[in-house]
């Protein structure tokens, strides 16, 4: 057996440590089971079960349509408001859910982490993957609504582009990387300072308003674009709209800024998380 030859050396780690790929691969079964547990356990003893994945964005869309489109009369890029909001929420929800599940990793699993060793990163990764499942369920719901719209409005130009098949997964990867990075930062900080638990919930509420989910980016005055683009969630949301509805506003320099911020957040997030993870059971 290969395992027998392996020697585990336990000693204080000096400096920063990046990923141990081999170990993550060795625990892939655990990753799969945690994803499956999230999926199964969340809706046990509920009547609607996985339908909740679809109801949540649809109800939000209805509220947004009434409040922002009908009452406040905010523009929606010339799109039907339902499709506009639903599409924005598709990307936004993925970000928000992954951010939240990642940032609560250490605090929520303190009991488990204090009793058994496995690579801690497996838990946020499992959250990330199970949110991909909910993303695809919501995407299917969105596509069904889109088809209904196109059938009832013959001759409309609103519709997905073919590139979406290739590019949409890439957008999702960027969102995943960014939400993981930011979430790991928050997780590391909440392990030490509980102040950040409060901040995490609050942050995500405010973040929605600086992301073009309710308003199209095209409506933002051009001199502010650079600030909006510094928010790395902006471009993925706009890309989603461009790919699925054909109207998003994409600007290459802004895309580069967004990708750069994503890489930075992911790398530093992993480093900080790995640093805290080593001794966090002593502090929690």
């Amino acid at each position: 057996m290969n395992d027998s030859q392996r020697e585990i050396v336990i000693q204080p780690t000096r400096g920063l440590r990046f990923l141990d790929w081999r170990e993550l691969v060795a625990y892939r079964d655990l990753l799969r089971l945690l994803v499956w547990r999230d999926f199964v356990a969340r809706y046990k003893q509920t009547v609607l079960g996985p339908l909740w994945y679809i109801f949540q964005p649809i109800l939000t869309t209805v509220i947004f349509t009434v409040v922002f489109s009908q009452v406040a009369e905010l523009p929606t890029d010339g799109l039907p408001p339902t499709l506009f909001y639903l599409c924005g929420l598709l990307a936004w929800n993925y970000f928000a859910q992954t951010f939240q599940s990642t940032s609560s990793t250490l605090a929520a699993n303190a009991g488990l982490f204090g009793k058994v060793y496995f690579p801690r990163l497996i838990v946020p990764l499992a959250g990330l993957v199970s949110n991909v499942i909910s993303f695809f369920i919501q995407l299917i719901a969105f596509l069904v609504i889109l088809v209904v719209y196109r059938v009832s409005h013959p001759g409309t130009t609103v519709g997905p582009r073919w590139e979406a098949i290739v590019l949409l997964p890439l957008v999702l990867v960027q969102l995943a990387a960014f939400s993981l990075g930011v979430g790991l930062w928050l997780a590391a900080l909440t392990a030490k300072f509980r102040d950040f638990t409060v901040l995490a919930g609050f942050l995500i509420q405010l973040w929605l308003y600086v992301t073009p989910v309710i308003l199209p980016l095209a409506k933002v005055p051009p001199q502010w674009h650079i600030y909006v683009a510094l928010n790395p969630v902006t471009m993925p949301v706009e890309c989603c709209r461009r790919l699925l509805l054909g109207t998003g506003w994409i600007n290459q320099p802004l895309l580069v800024v967004s990708l750069g911020a994503t890489v930075l957040a992911l790398v530093t997030g992993i480093l900080v998380f790995q640093r805290v993870e080593r001794t966090f059971v002593d502090v929690i």
């Binding site: 395992d3 392996r6 585990i8 000693q11 059971v281």
Partner: peptide
């Protein structure tokens, strides 16, 4: 391996 030592080493040979 739930927490790290402050100093010293431990070697475990095997699973």
């Amino acid at each position: 391996r739930i927490t790290e030592p402050t100093s010293g080493t431990a070697r475990l040979r095997g699973r």
